[in-house]
């Protein structure tokens, strides 16, 4: 019995030692294994692929994000990330109230387009009151008006090998030695043709304000906010992400976030 007591004491002692070592060292011991590019990180990231497949399986192509009523709009849309692009090109557009704005649609399409602001405004529009979920954790409900992206794509006629729609933006969150790193995002053809995926130019019944992405931002209602690129000037259809940024398909995916942000 005394042996058992010793064992118990030893067990307790090693447990307390282990726990305090963990507390003193913080959770630094896991930092290396979780760093981008490490072998373990790649294992962890494989769960993202599982999430994508599971959500596509469950949600299919057409499941709709919840739409709210006007009574649910209690505040203005909270801006985040870039709120004021500094490029000369954007500043010039802004000074003229975006009247000279043009959207280019290029890449793997049979009919490349240059759409003026008037053309976009004249196309059939969709208005939806939806909830914007930021990857940080907060949500905000607002009314968005814009052209369904599917209509624009139908006109551009994507080729059979086009797999992703890439949004090129005017804003740069950081600068590298080569100059500003411009924001870009991409979605698959399923989300691109989703009925609630719109190129929004209106917010809460008024023209889209600059902090929220004027003159054009995309709404991808079944994903998180960082997928909904602001300040879009070019849409490009591609087969792979190899030629873009660090090859992960989005500014934030290049920085360790999941490319698919359905959760």
């Amino acid at each position: 019995m005394s042996r058992t007591n010793l064992d118990r004491r030893a067990l307790l002692r090693s447990g307390v030692l282990g726990a305090s070592a963990l507390a003193l060292g913080g959770c630094k011991i896991f930092d290396d294994a979780t760093r981008q590019g490490s072998a373990m990180r790649n294992v962890f990231e494989s769960a993202g692929e599982l999430t994508y497949r599971a959500q596509r399986l469950l949600g299919g192509k057409q499941s709709l994000a919840r739409e709210y009523s006007r009574d649910d709009i209690l505040q203005s849309q909270h801006p985040n990330g870039s709120v004021f692009p500094e490029s000369a090109e954007y500043q010039a557009l802004m000074r003229n109230d975006f009247r000279d704005f043009e959207l280019a649609v290029s890449g793997l399409v049979d009919n490349p387009l240059i759409l003026s602001r008037e053309t976009l405004l004249a196309m059939p529009a969709r208005t939806q009151i939806t909830r914007h979920d930021c990857v940080e954790g907060w949500s905000c409900i607002a009314e968005w008006t814009g052209v369904p992206l599917g209509l624009v794509l139908d006109e551009a006629r994507p080729r059979a090998n086009a797999r992703y729609v890439v949004f090129h933006c005017h804003d740069a969150i950081e600068r590298s030695l080569a100059g500003p790193v411009y924001y870009y995002e991409s979605i698959d053809m399923i989300d691109a043709h989703h009925p609630q995926t719109i190129l929004a130019y209106g917010l809460n019944g008024a023209p889209l304000p600059v902090p929220n992405g004027a003159p054009l931002r995309v709404r991808v209602e079944r994903q998180l906010g960082y997928k909904m690129a602001k300040y879009i000037h070019k849409i490009e259809l591609v087969e792979s992400f190899a030629e873009l940024g660090n090859g992960k398909g989005s500014y934030w995916a290049d920085r360790g976030y999941e490319w698919y942000a359905g959760i």
Partner: peptide, 12 residues
């Protein structure tokens, strides 16, 4: 986890 502020890694 990780010990520094790193939302991307935390989520993954």
């Amino acid at each position: 986890i990780p010990s520094n502020q790193d939302l991307a890694t935390g989520r993954v």
